[in-house]
Design a binder for these strands. Structure first.
Lengths: 239, 239
DNA sequence: AAGAGTCAGCTGCTCTAACCAACTGAGCTA
DNA sequence: TAGCTCAGTTGGTTAGAGCAGCTGACTCTT
């Protein structure tokens, strides 16, 4: 029983532009118009007309792009080109780790090992090459860390700043963002899942040692210092 | 002109569960049920009931999760827990690079520098520590590369395999995936944007040198070999 | 009885149409 | 002039209908 109906579509338009294609079209629009981060995108009705799709399909495409950090949607305001940060990657990595953890895998440990492998490799490129200004800043951060340790406060944010400042010396924003993404994912999962109490004084001493080693220019010592630091975290995870 | 209407909602339910929360609910469902990759998720109608949301909202949440690689949707078949690979990260990184490129930034170069920084650091951990089996495999890959070079064929796939096999020795699947993601993103963008012709013989020689250096256990030589390799690519980009 | 074709029914996909909710800015009010 | 209100914009959510891919059981043929 054929239930044919006249197609309510304009001739010349593709019948159904798959959602995947819609995403591509919107990305193409951003690239073609050279839109920078924060630039406004067409409104939903405009996109409907431009892409020849229904509101629903347009919105699904936008949602997917939002999940990838490519667009940013603000209710009642408009849609904008996203910051293209690594926030989505952090999200994905964190979930992957959490899911693995609950299935009995050592996913958190492996994430830590990823950080250790990368940072150990990178610190050797830094040893003896960090500008004095950065070293001073790192000094201040370790001081603050010791202060926080004395007060029994958490060191997380300062730890994050220390690592960020350290690898800023590599002079590659992309690399810094990736490292911060790994840090964020790890700490988010650690906080949600295990949250093992740490001895802040040990952590402080290890950061001081990393800094001293980098300042001295001794590559092997710097690598060893990083390895010690991660070894400490690893012990806490297993314990 | 107030156009009030009785709310068609069950009491006790939140009026509007934002799409963001819907995503969290679905992720929670995966974690709570310990669903592994490939496990089937509830159908759309089931999710509608379970989450108390409309079809549309459920679908938008699923689309976002699909973009993050957390779920996989198969038309006419069902929805499944995704592979949680880094495919979404590759997508995001590639787009970010393409968009930056068209806005006049050296985004592709910075992506290459990211790879160089990470791989240079990692290769020093490998030098002299690779099992003989891996070294043999790498030999075969360079051989194949030379063969392809002689035939004037592309070396891309073999290059990918070389790097993948090399860092497999670090024995961290997560790390390997990240490196491959960087490789994929870089080559995808390079292919789409510049596609500079290369001298395959130089590339072969450099891979041979990397392999020899790693086999010899000379850390500095290995780092230098990697740097040379990336320097070659960098020259092609600028030229 | 064995094979091939058909069809009912699942699944997700797309469309339309209406209303809800957040935000802005012009214009009114005090 | 300062503050409020309200109309109009934008995205958010719901509803219901029909489209499209896939599976498996049923039937018809051989």
């Amino acid at each position: 029983m054929a239930r044919n109906r006249a197609l309510p579509r304009l001739a010349g338009y593709p019948l159904a532009m798959a959602a995947r294609d819609l995403q591509e079209q919107i990305k193409k629009l951003i690239v073609d118009r050279r839109l920078p981060s924060g630039a406004p995108l067409p409104t939903e009705p405009e996109l409907m007309e431009h892409l020849g799709a229904s509101r629903n399909s347009v919105r699904e495409a936008l949602k997917a792009l939002q999940a990838m950090g490519i667009v940013e949607i603000r209710h009642g305001f408009g849609t904008y080109v996203g910051s293209m940060s690594f926030a989505p990657m952090i999200e994905g990595l964190a979930f992957r780790t959490v899911a693995g953890h609950y299935r009995g895998e050592d996913s958190l440990l492996r994430l830590l090992e990823l950080r250790e492998a990368v940072e150990t490799g990178l610190v050797s490129r830094l040893a003896g090459r960090l500008p004095e200004a950065d070293l001073v800043e790192l000094d201040a951060l370790v001081d603050r860390m010791e202060q926080e340790a004395a007060q029994g406060a958490g060191l997380a944010e300062t730890d994050r700043a220390f690592h960020a400042t350290l690898y800023r010396g590599l002079d590659n924003v992309l690399l810094s963002e990736v490292l911060e993404a790994f840090w964020d994912a790890f700490h988010r999962v650690q906080r949600d899942l295990v949250d093992v109490p740490q001895d802040p004084r040990v952590t402080c001493r290890q950061h001081r040692e990393i800094l001293d080693a980098v300042r001295s220019g001794d590559v092997l010592r710097a690598e060893e210092a990083i390895r010690d630091h991660f070894g400490n975290i690893r012990t806490r995870l297993s314990g």
